[in-house]
Design a binder for these strands. Structure first.
Lengths: 217, 217
DNA sequence: CATTCTAGTTTGAACGTTCATTCTATGCTA
DNA sequence: TAGCATAGAATGAACGTTCAAACTAGAATG
């Protein structure tokens, strides 16, 4: 797992396998509740019912509701970070990228995932602790994507300066994260259509020499 | 204003200018509170304080909190719908599109706007009434964008079938809505950089004959 | 083998607070 | 004075959190 620097400060610092199991049980239940009712709409009573334990017991594993939210956020972002690291270390980067693009489209368009991701973003816009985690993960993912693209361009015999690479990364990030929004706004959106568009745009962006040498009015 | 079919069902059905003023006053205060605390984190007491009136008085203008949320959502989406209609009826569509793209980038990257938009999306993922409003607006905006793009392509002497047009619209929608997410994830993002990328991509997409006739491995 | 001990696990009731909403009384204006 | 505008207290439910007691299972003891 990619470790974040946030201290967890759980009241039971020992790491017995049982307590780890219980913690996961709580996080799974919390993710479910947060998805369907939002961070502030979901109650501890609800989460405890879903997790199959008493409300009070949850406080043996998490200091308070805020800590559960933080853990859920970290867990979700960690997954993203992992994906970007996998991409960077793939042997055939171009095909890995296209393959992960397909996966990414599926993930982002899944309304189940999208709901939680949007909840996290909305919370990040008002909760400084969550915002910090989100920003940190974004920086790491962008840097990883930069490295991937730079290597990819070089392997195709192209040279690109840092600004061009960063612009490409931002564009790709914007497109994929836009899917999270589309999943909610247009749930009947055809996934295959989107996959096709994305493949073409990615190929176009990577195959081209430099994104700045083009017509402009 | 673009009228949505949702019934408002306010307890005071008469439309005196004074009551309309009060209603707006409440909505402005509510938007502020919702932005900083979320739909479920903001309380009626808070909203009433911000609006400078008593908590009970709010219920003379809105049936309940849910109705306030619905009104806020409708107001925000209405703005989007208006923009897409303006674009469609512009005399010089291409330059209008590029101009609105710049504006759109600014709007979407404004963290103030982004926070409320994300709150609306998160709510749409769990509240069927909000979801219905969001879906309806999205369909209308996409249809309007379709018409704009079709006319634009035709004016450039290109022919494009409905599927190509729709794919283009979806891609543009995804990119712009992705900015809402980027505004939160990377608040230090350079706006000028994004504007530049977007102009280039839009010109590329529109100038090109058909998005399917291109290199592929 | 039966028992007590012990330390961690789990419960469910209780607490104080805050919430959305209702109600009644008062102010204002025409 | 009639009727709408407004305030602010009252209400009951729900919330996050705490806490003391009950339970459990394995170690220690006889």
């Amino acid at each position: 797992m990619v470790k974040a620097p946030t201290a967890q400060a759980a009241p039971a610092p020992q790491e017995s396998p049982r307590s780890e199991l219980r913690r996961m049980q709580i996080l799974d239940a919390a993710a479910d509740c947060f998805r369907t009712h939002g961070f502030h709409g979901a109650s501890i009573a609800q989460i405890s019912r879903t997790a199959g334990m008493s409300a009070g017991h949850i406080y043996h594993y998490f200091e308070n509701k805020e800590a559960i939210i933080a853990a859920i956020v970290e867990r979700d972002l960690d997954h993203l970070h992992q994906l970007s690291e996998e991409l960077r270390s793939a042997p055939d980067m171009l095909s890995a990228m296209l393959h992960q693009a397909d996966n990414g489209v599926s993930d982002q368009l899944d309304p189940h995932c999208a709901a939680l991701k949007l909840e996290i973003l909305a919370e990040a816009s008002r909760n400084p602790a969550v915002a910090a985690t989100v920003h940190q993960t974004d920086r790491a993912c962008l840097a990883s994507l930069d490295a991937t693209l730079r290597a990819l361009k070089r392997s195709l015999g192209q040279e690109a300066d840092d600004a061009e690479i960063r612009a490409l990364s931002e564009l790709l990030a914007t497109m994929f994260e836009g899917l999270t929004v589309r999943a909610i706004r247009n749930p009947s959106l055809n996934k295959a259509l989107v996959s096709g568009i994305f493949r073409k745009v990615i190929l176009e962006l990577i195959a081209r020499q430099a994104p700045s040498a083009h017509r402009q009015p």
